[in-house]
Amino acid sequence: MTRAEIYNRIVGILVKSFELDPNDIRPESRLFEDLDLDSIDAIDMFVELHEVTGRRIDVQVARKIRTVEDIVKLVESELASANVPPTQE
């Protein structure tokens, strides 16, 4: 997946899971302050990201996530280290 594809996939997850308006989501959007997610939402998001990457994201890594761009970078790095084709929806 290209970075743009990853970004679009993440926006899709955010819109579907949390009923966000796609127009409100930007790479620099902060998950908790700007998009109003809470820690329970974050868990749901990591469950969805598991579908994308096929890998379980470590809680300690997840703690560092603040923005949508952070998720993109995390997924990129997970996909690179997984070195397997991502699962498709």
Partner: peptide, 17 residues
């Protein structure tokens, strides 16, 4: 868990959910 949750550092905690 509240201390370790992604939201903890953002000034949020489980009680806000």
């Amino acid at each position: 868990f509240a201390a370790a949750s992604p939201a903890a550092g953002a000034g949020s905690d489980l009680s806000s959910g």
